[in-house]
């Protein structure tokens, strides 16, 4: 069964008819040809498909496209400003926070969303005092980024990159 969907992806509005079964991830990849979000597990277990939906980080593999009518989707491809990488992306490049690159767009989107959550004062599982301001140390970054698996093991460099981006 098909349904109509209008959404903005990386700043561009698209209207398309989608199978109601199509996920946000598959709509982006197979219908719009935007393969920046990756399919690592398709079940919300790896984070490679992370995108920003109306500014918040989400897993695109577990969202139905049809439920996202009117949404603003940002992928890692859409984080660039002209030729300029997003500061988080630039920090990943500078710290070699990637190897095979397959988890990387999801890590980047997750980090961007995570930093906004920190700015909004959201605590994490390793925040000892739930009511205190968040101090974004390495342990906080690791916990908050744990929904993004990296099998190449680039974690140390990713954390260093995010620390730098957070300071900027």
């Amino acid at each position: 069964m098909e349904a109509d969907l209008t959404w903005r992806v990386d700043g561009v509005e698209h209207t398309l008819a989608v199978d109601t079964r199509t996920t946000v991830l598959d709509a982006l990849r197979d219908r719009l040809g935007n393969t920046s979000p990756k399919k690592g597990c398709d079940h919300g277990q790896c984070g490679a498909c992370t995108v920003l939906v109306d500014g918040r980080r989400q897993l695109s593999c577990l969202g139905l496209a049809v439920a996202h009518d009117g949404s603003e989707i940002t992928t890692a491809a859409g984080l660039v400003d002209g030729d300029e990488l997003h500061p988080v992306q630039q920090a990943f490049v500078d710290h070699d926070g990637l190897q095979c690159g397959y988890c990387t767009p999801g890590q980047v989107c997750s980090a961007v969303g995570m930093l906004d959550e920190v700015k909004a004062g959201h605590p994490s599982a390793v925040s000892d005092d739930l009511e205190a301001d968040v101090e974004l140390d390495e342990d906080e970054i690791r916990e908050r980024m744990s929904g993004n698996l990296c099998r190449c093991g680039a974690y140390s460099n990713i954390v260093a990159a995010i620390e730098e981006a957070a300071r900027a």
């Binding site: 393969t35 920046s36 992928t75 890692a76 990488l85 690159g101 990387t104 767009p105 980047v108």
Partner: peptide
Amino acid sequence: GRVDARAKVTGTAPY
């Protein structure tokens, strides 16, 4: 630096 880093951080490197 990795020569394909830019393509990878933007997700534009095709698998």
